[in-house]
Amino acid sequence: MALDRWIALIFITFCCAYGYLAFFTMDQLLPPFMQRNPVWPSTFPKVLSILGVIVGLIVLLGLEKQTDASEPSATEINYRRLHEYKLGQALMLLGLMVAYALALRPVGFLLGTTLFLIAGSAVLGERKWHIMIPVAMIATGCVWYLVQQVLGIFLRPFPFFMGI
């Protein structure tokens, strides 16, 4: 089985587990006044899980591919030439994402996100530090302001030891 079909099978499994949680566990603790609403908190996860299974089945069954092509096109992933792709960059970005998720609370949103954006753009090859650092700081500040002030969701802006 091709790499894309294995990924589709894993995706379908994830969507089935997500759909099980959405259909059978999310709505049990709803208060009585919400049980008569046409849209519940689980409506969007239900739709996402169903659409995910449909898309995964399309890829798994090969319905999106052309039947006359024997060799993969340039836009498809060729698992025989997987060593030619930039897997190092992808793995470093995944490692950065994990480190960012683990460091977000102790370091704070502003410093953690700024460092993640700077390190991520450096991994991807950006070398104009005089542009990269201000853009990361401005983007982080704008996102924090929108989430904290506009949406009213608390994000710890500074490290935990500052106590702010």
Rank of each mutant, 00 (worst) to 15 (best):
D4L: 10
D4Q: 06
R5L: 10
I7W: 08
I7Y: 01
A8L: 15
A8F: 11
I10Y: 09
I10K: 05
T13A: 11
T13M: 13
F14R: 00
C15I: 02
C15H: 02
Y18V: 00
G19D: 04
Y20G: 05
L21Q: 03
F23I: 00
F24S: 07
T25Q: 09
Q28N: 06
Q35G: 05
P38C: 07
V39G: 02
W40Q: 12
T43P: 00
T43M: 07
S49E: 04
G52M: 10
V53W: 04
I54S: 00
L57A: 03
L57S: 00
I58Y: 14
V59Y: 06
L61R: 15
E64K: 11
K65C: 02
D68K: 09
S70W: 11
S70T: 15
E71I: 11
P72C: 05
R81N: 13
L82I: 15
K86C: 01
K86T: 06
K86Y: 02
L87M: 14
Q89R: 15
A90D: 12
L91M: 11
L91P: 01
L91E: 10
M92G: 01
L93G: 04
G95L: 06
G95Q: 03
L96G: 07
M97S: 14
M97H: 04
L102Q: 03
A103I: 00
V107D: 12
G108R: 15
F109L: 07
F109D: 06
L110A: 01
L110K: 02
G112D: 15
F116S: 03
L117R: 05
I118C: 07
A119T: 11
A119D: 12
G120E: 14
G120M: 03
A122Y: 06
V123H: 04
G125F: 13
E126H: 01
R127H: 02
R127L: 08
K128N: 10
K128R: 13
K128A: 06
W129T: 03
W129A: 12
H130Y: 11
H130P: 01
I131Q: 13
I133V: 13
V135T: 09
V135C: 09
I138D: 04
I138M: 12
I138L: 15
A139H: 06
V143H: 10
V143Y: 13
L146C: 14
V150I: 04
V150F: 01
V150H: 03
L151K: 08
L151Y: 10
G152R: 11
I153W: 05
I153K: 01
I153R: 13
L155A: 09
R156E: 12
P159N: 13
P159D: 07
P159T: 14
F160R: 12
F161E: 08
F161M: 09
F161V: 08
I164R: 02
